Amino acid sequence: MERWVRVQNERDRQVLAWLRGQVGDAAIIAAAQSCAGPGIKPYLSAICRALHVTPPRYAAIRTGAGEVGERHLVSIYQILRGPRSAAHAGR
């Protein structure tokens, strides 16, 4: 199916799998052919618009780097809340 449609990431793969279940391969290929330019595969968003469907929103897939970033954010929030919490406790 990726021969007909531009798939760039895991979210695109999830949307394509959902779309195949909703409308079938033949409809996706027909929509891709109507949206595509010469030698250019259409984006999945264009295919969905052509088929008049809205894909469901999927949770972002977390990577190791994202988890590290979130741990740092939690630490920063704790540091920022620290003095404020102590100031309010004395009142």
Rank of each mutant, 00 (worst) to 15 (best):
E2V: 05
E2T: 07
R3F: 06
R3H: 07
R6C: 13
R6A: 15
R6G: 11
R6Q: 15
V7H: 04
V7Q: 04
Q8D: 15
N9M: 01
E10D: 10
R11Q: 15
D12K: 03
D12C: 07
R13Y: 12
R13A: 14
R13L: 13
Q14I: 05
V15S: 07
L16I: 00
L16E: 00
A17C: 10
W18M: 02
L19F: 05
L19T: 02
L19Q: 03
R20F: 08
R20W: 10
G21R: 03
G21K: 03
Q22S: 01
Q22R: 02
V23N: 01
G24P: 09
A26N: 15
A27S: 12
A27G: 12
I28M: 03
I29Q: 14
A30H: 09
A30M: 11
A31Q: 01
A31Y: 02
A32D: 00
Q33K: 14
Q33T: 13
S34F: 07
S34A: 09
S34N: 10
S34W: 07
C35S: 05
A36I: 03
A36V: 02
G37W: 01
G37R: 05
G37E: 02
G37A: 00
P38T: 07
P38E: 09
G39T: 08
G39R: 10
I40S: 11
K41G: 00
P42E: 08
P42Q: 10
P42I: 04
Y43P: 13
Y43G: 14
Y43C: 12
L44Q: 04
S45E: 15
A46D: 15
A46H: 14
A46L: 14
C48K: 06
C48W: 06
C48D: 09
R49G: 11
A50G: 10
A50Y: 11
H52S: 08
H52K: 09
V53T: 00
V53D: 00
V53M: 00
V53N: 00
V53F: 00
T54V: 11
T54A: 07
T54Q: 07
P55N: 02
P55R: 02
P55D: 07
P56G: 06
R57H: 15
R57C: 13
Y58A: 01
Y58Q: 04
Y58C: 04
A59H: 09
A59W: 08
A60N: 02
A60C: 01
G64Q: 06
G64V: 02
G64T: 03
A65I: 02
A65K: 03
G66K: 09
G66I: 06
V68C: 06
V68G: 02
V68F: 05
G69F: 06
E70R: 04
E70L: 06
R71C: 09
L73Q: 03
V74Q: 13
V74I: 10
V74M: 09
S75Y: 13
L80F: 12
R81P: 05
R84P: 08
S85Y: 13
A87L: 13
A87P: 11
H88G: 14
H88D: 15
H88M: 15
A89N: 08
G90N: 12
G90Q: 13
G90W: 11
G90H: 12
